[in-house]
Nucleic acid binder design. Structure first.
Length: 897
RNA sequence: AGGGGGUUAGCUCAGUUGGUAGAGCGCCACCCUUACAAGGUGGAUGUCGCAGGUUCGAGCCCUGUACCCCCUACCA
């Protein structure tokens, strides 16, 4: 026979003793593995691949916890679950990290040469790339780790090349001279995502541009005077009366010999500054647009490293800041600098290097988005892809409307190299999946591969199918593509979600996922975004160390509601750590009560016999049914916080506070009574279901507990998730009527405790009480549960009788639905009567307020005419009861005074 | 500037079919009652931002308004 040495369990739950061991056990048993082919319904999720360079932050913790909760829930619900893990090479981020490291060693990454540098990054990846994976495991992520994919893995690379070549052949990829964000620190194009605007206190300079014909001058204001060297026009508003005569004329560009036209464009704000804007198409995005409209020449004055080039004439070779000083000095010398005002403005900085981002004209590769966006819009409009919450679909569609071509080339070394070779002989391009040995066009062997690599998001966009073996046709894709749900924060809807939809439709002819669940971001206690640089970032690994992964997960889940941001609170985390401890101790106590419990031969399928069940047994089963229904509904609609709260209340307030207390008198009996046996069986079943319900939320502690239960299966992680449907037979043992009756008992106990508390009767003092039921049913209920009432309310005697002496007694009317009981506690000799007088007066006042508002409502003719019958009925009943209670209390009060 | 969100107990937040408000933490009182002091029992606390409207009835629906936050784009 099994022995349950529950008392040998520590009285505090220690996650450190449990989590690593449990996780290893799950892994060793292969529970995370998906079946490539199965008769079970597939459920697949692609993990947004974190950067290999990174360490887990709370945002990941939130994102992963939501996914893991869904995945565990579905796994337990019988689905064939694939949670596909991966890590991202994160081109820019990783390259920047390694370059920084090299710099510390006094080496220059660029000088090392491409091959040497890339080798170095791979070394770095081998050394540190597993760290984030290990951290994910600490959190409990139940990914199918054998499928762990890195975005630079061979098969992914093949997919990337195939997509590039296909898009190129379809004319959807082209090379063009465009203005892009240029990081002078990285000497590469970067995406909008990698530009961070910082407020800079600078100056605004007013510069005079004289008309070429000598008929006057315009005053131009700029924050970047050095860029005037690249000006190719000056613009005014077409309707600006002040400048009508200037339009079409030419001005002399200061410090140069060039003359540039005055053009009219509605972009110019008449009210701002002088109403005249210098136009530098090669160094400003707005100016670039104007330049396109007016077919202005684009004059690039910068080198890749941020110094001025030959187009800047005498200023070439200087860095922007130095050039600015020189330009200003020369302007001043020529008396062209009218004035200088302080001015605060937002300046783009590279998030990786901190250097200023320059709009920079350069040759880059682009994906033509227009034709690709249309179908990607349609699938969202038609509901083929559902956003949850729905409102994000609007954001998505809006972005699709204003979508621009996607710059996919980066002047980096770390990443997927662009599969394009230029022929030195005929200058034509060879674009190929396999590395070519000669030019496609002239067969020259003199070909040179494009130096650039692809934007990291390019490979990310293919992730849902590149991780499943595409372009080969695989069983995996058959089974799991499209994936079921994508879970992500809103900040990458454009960078990632939209592009996955686009690529999925283009290359798989189907959407990559059915649902996109968008959650909020985590902020600190002040509501600020968490970031390492601000120093307000909490380290989830440390939080797990201190509180356990389950507590952290529960904290996060308890706040996931309707896609809103959540603030991290250490107090809250502590609260959920306490909750885990409560669960632990509730179990410890239960197991003690089950010491000599002999599991029935049928195991879990051997259910208790209804006729043997006590009121608390039927009550707890009924409550369990309510929770199973709620959690089922809430998980289906992604209301994680409500599900978590519902379970929290069930475990703590229903199970521990009341059910376990009710079982105490039963288990206190030294005899093996039938009642005791029945309760043991119920308790064993309830425990089993409780941990099953909680498992997706708090996987470690629940598995640990499960393994110690007398009634259990092989492993919790693959046991069935309880629902009202699949748990019907057990739930049928519960009873709503009995639940109501037991609620009356609870109210009676609470009333006695209230009288005790308010009258300062010491907890150790046993008192007498008389319970005066209003009808036979109430009488019977009280009789049945008398022992519990006496134990839980600390009574030395308990009389159940409708009549008796009320002198010097505390009285508290109690009612639950149609059941009514007056709780009477003789106070003579126990307490100062004053306290009881105060207590009763307070209760009367409260009831009177209720009666007043109810009376008013009941006398309102339109209410009576319009309100539904049951609402009126309930109001009437309540009014009657409250009045009755007042009279009971008043007579009690009269006897005290 | 455009788009979105928030404003509910001292703090952090729940509140999906409109029927007179909930949790956790904190606070007060009493308790080491042999599962748990990371605990137990009892208690106090809200004109649900403000002003209107619809309704018999509004935290919830509508209009306006104030303040805060986020996102996108920024004025040269």
């Amino acid at each position: 026979m099994l022995r349950y040495l529950s008392m040998e369990l520590p009285d505090r739950y220690n996650p450190k003793d449990v989590e690593g061991r449990i996780y290893q056990w799950w892994m060793s048993r292969g529970y995370f593995k998906a079946e490539e082919k199965s008769t079970r319904v597939p459920y697949s999720v692609i993990l947004p691949p974190p950067n290999v360079t990174g360490s887990l932050h709370l945002g990941h913790a939130l994102n992963h916890t939501i996914q893991d909760t869904l995945v565990r829930w579905k796994r337990m619900s019988g689905f064939n679950v694939l949670w596909m893990p991966g890590t991202d090479h994160a081109g820019i981020a990783t390259q920047a990290v390694v370059e920084r490291e090299l710099k510390k060693e006094g080496k220059n990454g660029r000088a090392m040469g491409r091959e040497e540098f890339v080798k170095r990054v791979w070394q770095w990846k081998e050394q540190y790339g597993d760290r984030i994976v290990e951290q994910m495991k600490r959190l409990g992520d139940s990914c199918d780790w054998e499928r762990l994919t890195f975005t630079l893995d061979e098969d992914v690379s093949l997919a990337v090349r195939k997509v590039f070549v296909d898009l190129y052949n379809k004319n959807l990829i082209y090379k063009g001279l465009r203005l892009i964000n240029w990081s002078t620190g990285l000497e590469s194009a970067i995406s909008d995502l990698e530009v961070e605007f910082r407020e800079i206190k600078g100056s605004i300079y007013h510069i005079r541009y004289e008309l070429a014909d000598g008929s006057g001058a315009v005053e131009v204001a700029t924050t970047r005077p050095e860029t005037l060297l690249g000006d190719t026009a000056v613009a005014v508003h077409p309707d600006d009366e002040r400048y009508q005569s200037f339009i079409g004329k030419k001005v002399k560009l200061p410090l140069t010999s060039r003359q540039i036209p005055v053009i009219a464009d509605a972009y110019v704000e008449r009210e701002f500054g002088s109403g005249v804007v210098k136009i530098t198409p090669a160094h400003d995005f707005n100016d670039y647009a104007i330049g396109q409209r007016h077919k202005l020449p684009m004059l690039n004055i910068l080198n890749k490293d941020g110094t001025l080039n030959a187009n800047a004439g005498a200023y070439s070779g200087n860095k922007v800041q130095e050039a600015r000083k020189l330009v200003l000095a020369d302007l001043e010398a020529q008396n062209l600098l009218v004035k200088t005002e302080p001015h605060t403005h937002q300046v783009g900085h590279c998030t990786r290097t901190g250097s200023v981002v320059e709009p920079f004209l350069s040759e880059q590769w682009f994906v033509k988005m227009g034709p690709l966006a249309t179908p990607a819009k349609r699938v969202v409009e038609s509901g083929t892809v559902i956003f949850e919450p729905e409102s994000w679909a609007k954001t998505y569609l809006h972005w699709m409307d204003i979508i621009q071509d996607w710059c996919i080339s980066r002047q980096l070394w770390w990443g997927h190299r662009i599969p394009v070779w230029t022929c030195l002989a005929c200058k034509k391009l060879t674009v190929s999946i396999e590395d070519p040995t000669q030019c496609q066009h002239c067969a020259s062997k003199e070909i040179q591969q494009d130096e650039d690599v692809l934007d990291t998001w390019f490979s990310s966009a293919l992730w849902p199918f590149s991780t499943m073996g595409w372009p080969a046709g695989t069983e995996l894709q058959q089974t799991f593509y499209p994936t079921t749900i994508l879970v992500t924060a809103f900040d990458i809807i454009f960078f990632w979600v939209a592009r996955m939809i686009i690529m999925g439709l283009e290359f798989k002819q189907d959407v990559p996922f059915r649902t996109v669940f968008i959650h909020g971001v985590i902020r600190d206690a002040q509501g600020k975004k968490m970031s390492k640089s601000v120093g307000n970032a909490e380290d989830p690994v440390q939080l797990i160390e201190d509180n356990g992964a389950d507590a952290l997960r529960y904290t996060l889940l308890s706040q996931v509601a309707s896609g809103r941001d959540l603030k991290f609170s250490a107090q809250r985390l502590e609260g959920y750590r306490n909750f885990m401890n409560k669960l632990w101790n509730g179990t410890r106590f239960s197991l003690n009560s089950l010491r000599n419990f002999v599991p029935p031969a049928g195991g879990l399928s051997a259910l208790p016999v209804k006729s043997e069940l006590s009121d608390p047994d039927q009550w707890i089963i009924f409550k369990l049914g309510v929770v199973e229904r709620e959690v089922d509904e809430m998980l289906k609609s992604y209301r994680f916080s409500e599900a978590a709260n519902s379970l929290y209340a069930f475990v703590w307030n229903t199970f521990c506070d009341w059910y376990l207390e009710f079982t105490k008198p039963i288990f206190a009996s030294p005899h093996e009574t039938p009642e005791k046996k029945a309760t043991q069986l119920v308790l064993a079943h309830i425990l089993n279901r409780t941990v099953r319900l909680l498992h997706p939320f708090a996987p470690f502690i629940t598995e640990e507990i499960y393994q110690k239960l007398p009634l259990k299966g092989e492993a919790l992680i693959v046991d069935t998730y309880p629902t009202p449907k699949n748990d019907k037979a057990f739930l049928a043992l519960g009873s709503e009527d009995v639940a109501t009756e037991l609620d009356l008992v609870r109210e009676v106990i609470t009333a006695i405790r209230n009288i005790r508390g308010e009258n300062r009767i010491k907890p150790g003092v046993r008192i007498a009480a008389r319970l005066s039921p209003m009808d036979d049913r109430a009488q019977k209920i009280l009789g049945t549960n008398k022992a519990s009432i006496m134990t839980m309310a600390k009574l030395e005697s308990c009389e159940i009788s409708a009549s008796g002496d009320l002198a010097k007694c505390a009285v508290q009317p109690v009612h639950v639905k149609t059941l009514n009981v007056d709780v009477i506690v003789p106070l003579a000799g126990l307490v100062d009567i004053e306290e009881e007088v105060k207590r009763i007066r307070k209760a009367i006042e409260k009831l009177q307020r209720e009666v007043a508002s109810l009376t008013q409502r009941m006398s309102d003719k339109s209410f009576m005419a319009n309100a539904p019958e049951d609402v009126v009925e309930q109001g009437k009943r309540q009014l009657e009861e409250s009045r009755g209670q007042i009279s009971t209390l008043e007579s009690a009060l009269a006897r005290l005074l």
